[in-house]
C-alpha cells in the first residue's frame, strides 16, 4: 500500500515560495484505485511526483510498503521506483528506438549489472503476456510511430506493470484520447488494479468515471480533500 502522511511541498517563486501541496494525507490499499481530480495548477501532478518518489517533500512521510521514500538517497529511490512503483505517464513517453515488446523488456535492464536479473527468455515471455493482457496481441514488433494513441497508452500501462509493482501511479492517461478510447483505458486500469493487486492513484480531469473508483479526492490550491461517494457522483454528474 501507499500512505502519504502530512505531505507539504513548496517551490521557489521569485523572492518567496509557492505551496504546491499543503499538509496532504492519503492512503491507498492494494487492489483499490483512488482518483484525484481538481483544476489545473492545483498540485495534482506534484502529488503524483511525491508519491512516485520523483521528488522529496519538504515535510511529511511517503510510505510505500512501509518504506519511507522521503528518507532514501537518490540511488535508493531509483531502486524503489524500479521495484515497487509503476508509472503511467500522461504522454506515453515510449522510447522511439524500441518496439512495443522491447518497451516492456527494457524494464528488466534498468538496474545494476550485478543485480539478479530475470533471464531474457523470462522477460520476453512476461512482456508478451502483458501485451496480450492489455489487448496488444500482434503489435509486439511495432515501434511507437506505428501505434495509435490508444495503443501507445496500453503499452505505457503494460510497461508500468512489468516489474510487478505494488503501487501504480497514473497521470491523466486519457487526456490525449477520444472519449471511447479514454473509457477503454480507464477500464484497463481498473482491470489491472484488480488483476495485479496494485494500490493505484489516478489523476484525471475526466469526471465520467469517478463513480467507479474506490475513493475520490479533490485537490484545490494544494489542499487534498476526500470526497464522499455522493459528492463523487455529483462531480461525475456535472
Amino acid at each position: 500500500m501507499i500512505r502519504l502522511d502530512d505531505i507539504t511541498l513548496t517551490f521557489p517563486d521569485g523572492d518567496g515560495f509557492v505551496t504546491a501541496i499543503d499538509h496532504a494525507n492519503l492512503a491507498v490499499e492494494r487492489g483499490t484505485i483512488t482518483a484525484i481530480t481538481g483544476p489545473s495548477g492545483s498540485g495534482k501532478s506534484s502529488l503524483l511526483a511525491v508519491a512516485s518518489a520523483l521528488i522529496a517533500p519538504d515535510s511529511g512521510r511517503v510510505l510505500i510498503d512501509d518504506v519511507d521514500a522521503s528518507t532514501l538517497s537518490r540511488t535508493q529511490t531509483a531502486t524503489l521506483r524500479r521495484e515497487r512503483i509503476g508509472i503511467v505517464f500522461q504522454q506515453s513517453n515510449l522510447l522511439p528506438s524500441l518496439t512495443a515488446l522491447e518497451q516492456l523488456e527494457v524494464m528488466g535492464h534498468l538496474g545494476s549489472s550485478n543485480a539478479t536479473k530475470r533471464s531474457a527468455q523470462e522477460l520476453r515471455a512476461r512482456a508478451t503476456d502483458l501485451l496480450v493482457s492489455v489487448g496488444l496481441e500482434g503489435q509486439a514488433g511495432k515501434r511507437p510511430s506505428a501505434l495509435s494513441g490508444g495503443q501507445r497508452q496500453r503499452v505505457n500501462i503494460a510497461r508500468a506493470l512489468m516489474n510487478d509493482p505494488s503501487i501504480l501511479i497514473v497521470d491523466e492517461p486519457t487526456s490525449a484520447l477520444d472519449q471511447e478510447r479514454g473509457a477503454a483505458i480507464i477500464d484497463l486500469i481498473l482491470e489491472m488494479t484488480l488483476a495485479r493487486n496494485t494500490a493505484t492513484i489516478l489523476v484525471t480531469h475526466d469526471r465520467s468515471h469517478l463513480t467507479r473508483m474506490d475513493a475520490v479526492f479533490t485537490m484545490v490550491d494544494g489542499t487534498l480533500t476526500p470526497a464522499a461517494v455522493e459528492v463523487a457522483a455529483m462531480i461525475a454528474a456535472q
Binding site: 537518490r74 540511488t75 524500479r82 512503483i85 508509472i87 513517453n93 522510447l95 527494457v106 524494464m107 534498468l110
Partner: peptide
C-alpha cells in the same frame, strides 16, 4: 535527454545509463 528522463523515472540507475 527526454528518453533518459523517462528511463530514470522508471527506475534506471545512473550507473546503468552511464554504462
Amino acid at each position: 535527454s527526454g528518453d533518459i528522463a523517462v528511463l530514470k523515472a522508471l527506475g534506471a540507475s545512473t550507473a546503468s545509463l552511464v554504462r
